[in-house]
């Protein structure tokens, strides 16, 4: 552990403040609770909210997984995982099933999360209405009144102009039939996973100084219209490496002649499938880890 710093970096006073905010967030599903976000040794916008939430819940018995874009080995995920390994001496894993706490940026793992897991989302912009109303004084008032007409008008205009809702990520959701909430910039593909998820979902926005939460088994509805139901977008082919047809795919440019390869964004999911013998058209047999 890093000398001179408290367990999990934050001082106990700060943890208590964040813990109080977390409890209120859980009690008011989808409501953004202001909190006294601290400067962290990582830049604002790089996961400071998620890190503060994780640091406030993490204990010595936890096993932490950190992903960015679904992958455990992207540089920012590596950096954050190292931070907790150094400051909290916590066990880390890349296996979704083995983790008790999963901190994520932009994805929800493909494997269904369990009742005894907590997923912590890094949130760049917690206010779902910010593109429609830039004043946070105004948006706060709108949340207070559950006045979400602006968003409905925006979606309706999308349908009128494009014949469909044009939001592909950070697709707004209504939590417990009350609060409009940003799911963070996850692809809309992941939105259905939030609905009645068995795991507790916590959201931290460090720069914007907001924490929010969705308790387990809570209804999370992606906004839509009866005649234009919510539809998740994904590439229309299987993973080139593991052949999965039900996972979210990244597009990899493999040459400068238009060559493309689609592979699972969830690297753990893909590796697990390949280890179990699933091979896609561009894949190859791998020895089980």
């Amino acid at each position: 552990m890093t000398e001179g710093y408290n367990f999990a970096y934050l001082d106990e006073q700060t943890k208590r403040m964040i813990r109080r905010a977390l409890l209120k967030a859980v009690a008011i599903p989808g409501h953004q609770v202001p909190f006294g976000s601290r400067e962290m040794p990582l830049p604002y916008g790089w996961g400071t909210g998620g890190i503060q939430v994780t640091a406030s819940i993490l204990g010595t018995n936890d096993v932490l997984k950190v992903i960015d874009q679904g992958a455990d080995d992207t540089t920012n995920a590596v950096s954050i995982r190292r931070f907790f390994a150094r400051t909290a001496d916590v066990a880390t894993t890349t296996h979704t099933a083995d983790a008790t706490v999963i901190q994520t940026r932009h994805r929800i793992p493909e494997k269904t999360l369990r009742d005894n897991q907590i997923i912590v989302y890094q949130v760049p912009q917690p206010e779902p209405l910010y593109r429609l109303e830039s004043s946070r004084v105004e948006t706060r008032r709108m949340h207070g009144l559950a006045d979400y007409g602006l968003m409905h008008v925006k979606l309706y205009e999308d349908v009128a102009r494009f014949g469909q809702i044009s939001i592909s990520y950070d697709y707004p959701v209504l939590v417990n039939q009350r609060y409009l909430m940003s799911p963070s910039p996850i692809p809309a593909f992941d939105n259905p996973k939030m609905d009645r998820m068995p795991a507790l979902q916590l959201f931290g926005a460090g720069r914007e100084k907001r924490i929010y939460a969705i308790p387990p088994w809570t209804a999370v509805r992606s906004l839509d219209f009866d005649d234009h139901p919510f539809r998740a977008i994904n590439a229309s082919e299987p993973c080139g490496l593991c052949g999965a047809t039900d996972s979210y795919l990244d597009e990899v440019v493999i040459d400068d002649r238009g060559g493309r390869l689609f592979v699972c964004s969830d690297t753990d999911h893909c590796a697990e499938r390949r280890a179990a013998g699933h091979i896609g058209k561009d894949g190859f047999a791998e020895a089980a880890e």
Binding site: R105, S168, I186, I233, D250, S265
Partner: peptide, 14 residues
């Protein structure tokens, strides 16, 4: 600067 390829991919498909 951080990877945004998941979001970008969803925009691309969109």
């Amino acid at each position: 600067k951080l990877p945004h390829y998941v979001d970008f991919q969803s925009e691309l498909q969109n």
